[in-house]
Amino acid sequence: MTLRYLLNGIDDTNILGRCLSESARPGDILLLSGDLGAGKTYLTKAIASGLGIDTREITSPSFTIIHEHLNGRIPLIHVDLYRLGRHADITEIGLEDYINGENLVVIEWAEYSDGPLLEQGLKIDLYLIDEEVREVCITARTDIWKDRLLELDGCMGKK
């Protein structure tokens, strides 16, 4: 099951972030993919904002790979596999320790990991249409996520 939205500028991305944060539960994994500049870090900011985290804290983890933000409604672990490249070994960066049912783990360049650990995650693909507009495809691959996507779509419909 896939939800598809056109995001016209950052206001729309903020709404998507808020809806994702409202439906987020401890233990969730969000897998973000998309070209350089597609808005993965920005969407993470919007999610963090919904969790009550100061968005100025959210910066690209490309260099440092994992950022912990522990003072929101749910602890947010912001990960970026960019520098690990294709076939990234997520056990080596200690990511398993964070997938423990307590955190919301958001992973940029998630397609770089091909291990089974991330199969339970919600796939979010961002596409750069032009400087302002993005398209997003949100794909549920498990039954639990399918139910929750309906919730998310409801939230998006209301805003």
């Binding site: 350089l36 910066t59 690209s60 490309s62």
Partner: peptide, 14 residues
């Protein structure tokens, strides 16, 4: 003040 998104060096690399 600090970067809100990418660091300058990261922008060079990307």
């Amino acid at each position: 003040g600090q970067t809100r998104d990418d660091a300058a060096g990261e922008a060079f690399d990307k």
